[in-house]
Write a protein that binds this DNA or RNA. Structure first.
Lengths: 190, 190
DNA sequence: CACGTAGTGATACGGTCGTACCAGAATGGA
DNA sequence: TCCATTCTGGTACGACCGTATCACTACGTG
């Protein structure tokens, strides 16, 4: 075998360029040539490592999701060995808010893919699974009769994400609103 | 003056084509030529009635918002002369869900514009005003100490919109979740 | 030390993009 | 009637798009 190269590193470098462009101006700004320029590699490399443009956008999204899940699990793990259910739930909900540049960019990229999710069959599969999974996890953390509250809590966090991204609400306020809901669902007496 | 033509009708016809394309495939599908074909008019007319492509997208968004507000007010008015606060609030929240094709398309178009809202200064102004206005309205309908609940309720409805659009949740379930929250905030005793 | 393979680099092609341009058709007021 | 003006239609241009192609370099293995 000739010249060995770190494929994953190359793909990640290119994917990161896709993220930056998509977060800043939507998917239409993530053209092959522009992504190549942003990544600092010849356009030919995108063909070699991803294939067509659609494959590139798909691959970049997969890497983004992998990163996101890893970050989220890391933050949950940081809560300690036997964290209180409330703190686990809080950590999951806060994962949906753009509380740092990493989450903010990830959520912007997701927003850029949003409409395409609906039209593209391949993409639709890639998200229809995730949030029911989240719902189930949250349901585990709340008393069983709170199923409705769990679902609405998740939706609320997602909605707050939008408001914060658009600058309509501060991140601090969003966190405060979530904490107020948690206060209600986890009474101090318990 | 020569040949008089209904400008508003032309603009609306073209804008509707923008909506259909943007809702189906995102803003990048709304090219000048494709919009013209979808609207059934020569591409030259888009130039004449809107100017540049950016002006077209901006104008189409304005028309969309005007339509949305009119529809919403109409539905609120349909509640009768002196509707109960709970019903007004419910109507406003349901306006955020894709409960019919009109709302669904409008919300999809908004989603298509979302990332662009953040980058484009002209667009950012066009939305930063609206939802604080909504927050204030909702605050009026709830007891004053429920400010946090009002804000979270609004966020929850927005989050449910995303889940329903993505097919992760049925519209009926979303309405049910909102009604459960309203049950809590408007105790039967009151 | 070759040789076959992994990876690079440049370029070319057909298509579509947004927009400028211009000649002409239609029509209300003089 | 005829002119000024509103509106239409077609076309042309340069830029950029995604992708295919092909010659080339570099290197682990035999």
């Amino acid at each position: 075998m000739p010249r060995q190269v770190d494929h994953d590193e190359r793909r990640r470098r290119i994917a990161a360029a896709v993220w930056r462009l998509a977060a800043a101006g939507g998917l239409e700004d993530a053209t092959v040539r522009r992504v190549a320029a942003e990544a600092g590699v010849p356009a030919r490399q995108l063909q070699y490592y991803f294939g067509s443009r659609d494959d590139l956008l798909l691959g970049a999204l997969d890497l983004l999701n992998r990163d996101g899940e890893a970050e989220a699990q890391q933050r949950v793990a940081a809560l300690g060995a036997t964290p209180a259910p409330r703190e686990v739930l809080r950590s999951i909900l806060l994962e949906l808010l753009p509380l740092d540049e990493s989450r903010r960019q990830r959520q912007l990229v997701h927003a850029a893919y949003f409409v395409r999710f609906l039209a593209d069959d391949g993409l639709r599969e890639r998200i229809r699974d995730t949030p029911p999974e989240l719902e189930a996890l949250i349901a585990l953390l709340l008393p069983e009769q709170h199923r409705d509250e769990a679902d609405f809590l998740l939706a609320g966090a997602a909605g707050l994400q939008g408001a914060v991204l658009l600058g309509q609400m501060s991140a601090e306020r969003a966190v405060e609103l979530i904490d107020r809901q948690l206060d209600r669902l986890f009474p101090a007496a318990a």
